[in-house]
Design a binder for these strands. Sequence first.
DNA 1: GCATTAAATCAATTGTCTTGACTTATTTCT
DNA 2: AGAAATAAGTCAAGACAATTGATTTAATGC
Lengths: 404, 404
Amino acid sequence: MDARKSIRAKSGTNLGGASAHNRRIMIDALRVNGALSRADLARATGLTPQTVSNIIEELASDGLVQSQASVRKGRGQPATPYQLVPDGAFAIGLQIDRHVTRTVIVNLVGDVLVQFESKLPAGGPAEGVVVILDLVERAREALTAQFPQAARKLVGLGLAMPGPFGINELYDDPWMMTAWQNFPLVERIAEGTGLEVALQNDASAAATAERLLGAAHGLDHVVCIYLGYGLGAGLILNGELYGGAYSNAGEIGMMLALAPGDGPDVEPLEHYTSMASLCNVLGLDHSDPKLFEQVTDAVIKGGPVVESWIANAADRLRRTVQMLESIFDPQTTILCGGAPKALIDSLIQRMEPVLPSIADRALRYPEPRLQAGLADPWSVALGAAAEPIARAFDPRFSAILKTP
Amino acid sequence: MDARKSIRAKSGTNLGGASAHNRRIMIDALRVNGALSRADLARATGLTPQTVSNIIEELASDGLVQSQASVRKGRGQPATPYQLVPDGAFAIGLQIDRHVTRTVIVNLVGDVLVQFESKLPAGGPAEGVVVILDLVERAREALTAQFPQAARKLVGLGLAMPGPFGINELYDDPWMMTAWQNFPLVERIAEGTGLEVALQNDASAAATAERLLGAAHGLDHVVCIYLGYGLGAGLILNGELYGGAYSNAGEIGMMLALAPGDGPDVEPLEHYTSMASLCNVLGLDHSDPKLFEQVTDAVIKGGPVVESWIANAADRLRRTVQMLESIFDPQTTILCGGAPKALIDSLIQRMEPVLPSIADRALRYPEPRLQAGLADPWSVALGAAAEPIARAFDPRFSAILKTP
DNA sequence: GCATTAAATCAATTGTCTTGACTTATTTCT
DNA sequence: AGAAATAAGTCAAGACAATTGATTTAATGC
C-alpha cells in the first residue's frame, strides 16, 4: 500500500517495447498483404532491410512465419516471400448465448480447427459454468489430437456474450441475460482453464471477426452493426476496438431512434430490429432451442409478416447507418450477425440506396458505404477467438508500453 | 511512382521513437500532476530513475521543465520537484467563422497571452486570407513584445473552421462555407506564416478546449456537442480527439434523426438545432455581422418564437444525447458552443431529465450525464491553439512511429 | 559477356535504456 | 550525539535493437 497521493501517468517504453511493436507490425503486414519479401516489408514499414531480416529470422525461429518459394519479378536477385505459419498460434473462442454455448479454436490465420457447441441448462450460470468448462476441455482435446504441440501455443481464451455489462436493467427484456452478466464468469473460466480470459460483448466479437478475416480486413475505421438476438455495434476506431468508458460502447440497440410514424415514447431500436423482435412478430417461443432454425425457415418461406418486419427493420437500419456515418466517418459500414444469411442479405438489399451523408464522397476508397459481413451463428465465437490472437500479435499502443 | 501493387502496413519504430514517447509521457505527467520529482516520475512511468534523470536533464536544457525548491517529505534525501515551464512553448490558434476570424496565442500550460479578432470581408477566402495573415502577424508581434524569445518556441498554428471537409455538397445551405472549404487554406496559411498548420472543425477545437480547461479536464471519454452556427460534436476517445477515416467524425448536424411528428423525408438535425436555424425562425439576416448580438438579444428577450424553437431543439438534443450515450458510453456529455451562454443553459435546462440509456448506471463517476461547457466565442480559437501543443507534446501512438 | 538492378547479408557503429554500485541528505532509533 | 535506516539522485559500464555502409548473390537487359 502506498501512502503518498496517487500519481497519474502513462507508461514509458524502451528498446523491448520498440522491438515488440516492430514484430507486431511485421505480423500485421503479412496478415493484411498475404506474403511479402523482406525487402517489401522494409519498404512498407519504414524499417531498414537489415532490421527486417533480423526480425523475420526471429519470427521464423518462433514458428510464426515461414518462407515460400522465391519469385523472380524482374531484374535483381529473386525475392523470397514470407507468410504467416497458420499453426504458429492458437486461441479459443467461447460464446455464451441464451440457450447455447459455442466454442471454436482458431489458428494464427483464423482457420477454424475445432467447433463444438452445447446446450446451456436452464439453471443459470452456476450450472452453466460446468457445461462450459467441459466444452472447452473437449475442444482442447480435439485440438491436441490434431496438433500435439498446440497446447503451448495457445495464447488465450476470448469470451463473448450479450451486453450491456454492469447496467441497471433498463428494460425488462426476457433476452437480457442478467444472471449471467452479474456472475464472475471471467474469473471462473480463467481458473477452470488456466488461460488468460478476456470478456467482450457479442457485437465487438463479431467486429473482431470481420477485421480478422471478413470485410473489415485491413481497415482501421469500421462500424460493424451486429444483428443477433439483440442489436449492437462493434466499433473499430484507429485500428482498435473501442469499448467506451465502461465497456458498453456500441449498444445501438438501446438507441431511442424514431422512424416515421413513431410516437414520442419510442422503444429502443432493438425492439424493432433484432432476431428477438422478429421472433415476437412470428409468435415463436423464445425459450425453444430450435429458435434459430425456425427463424431461418420463416425468412426463407417469406410471407407478409416477415416482409413487413424486414421493411420496417431495413428502414430503421438505413437511418441508423446514416447516423453512424455522420458520427464516425468510417471507411465502411458492415451489417453482420448471428442472424440467418438470407435475412442479412435481404436487409442490405432493402437498405439500398443508402441515405445521403458525409460518407457520400467523390474520392472514396474502394470500399462501399454499406456491405454484408459474416452471417453465421459461429461468427461471434470466431471473433471471440480472434481477440486473444489480436491481443498477442496486433500492433497497438498498449503493446509498446513497458509492462511492470 | 511505384509500379508494384501497393502494400499496406503500419510504420515501425526505433530507439528514437521510444525516446520521443518517453519525453512526451514526462511532459504529460507533469501537466496532469503539477510538479513531480525525478523519483516520482520514475515510479509513475515505470522507467528507471537514471533514464528519467537523463530525460529531465534534456527537457530542462530545452527550456521545457524547471526545478522548484526541494522539499523534505520524510526520511531520505529531499526531492527536487520539476514543473513545466509555462513559456517553454507557444502555439497560435485561429478560428475562421462566417463573418469573423479570431486568433489566440497560448503557452505550454494553456494560458491565453494574446487575443485578437478581425471582421472577414465579404469577398471570400481569396480576400479573407490577407486579413487572416495580417491578424496572425499582429498577434505574433504582440507575443514577441511580451516574450522576445517566443518566436523560435512557436510549435505550430491550429486552424479551426466549420466542417465538413472534402464532401460533395449535400445540402445547399447558405451557412456552409463552401468557398472556404474548397480553398487551399492550410497551404496558404502555412506559407504565409512559415508555421506548421493543422486543420480541424470547430467542434473538435471546442472539445480540445473543454479538455484543456473546461468540464472535460482529466477525462478520457467525452462527447462534446458543439452548438454554433451549425451543429457538431468533438469526440474525445481514449484521451485523444477522434477524427474518423476522413477527418469528418462528429458531424452530427448531418444526422437525419427524426423527432415525433417528422415525416419520412426529414432534414438534417442542424436545420432544426443550430444558431443558423434559430436565425431563420427569427427572420434575421445571415449576412449581418451583428448576428451574434441579435441572437443574444432575442434569446434574452424570449417570446413565443424563441420558446418554441428552444423546446423543439431541446427535444432533438435530448434524443441525440441518448443516442450518443448508447453509441459511445462516455464519462459525460457536454453541451458547449459559440452560441450565447443563456441559450446553452436554457437548452440544458429543458433537456433534463435525460432519457434512459446505458449511461444510467448505479456506480457512475461523479460526472453528471449532461453538463454545460464553455459558451464563449473564443473557445474555438483556444481549442485550435491547444492542438499544436497537444501534437507536439502529448503521448500518442503516431508519435512513436518512424517518420519517413 | 558485361552493366544494371534488386534482394539479402555482414560487420561495425550508434543511441537509448538498464544495471549495480555509489554519494548525498534527511529522519529515526538507541 | 551518533549510528542505522531510508530515499533521491548520480556514475560508469553494459546490454540491446536499429542503423550504416560495404559486400555478396542472383536475376534481367543490352
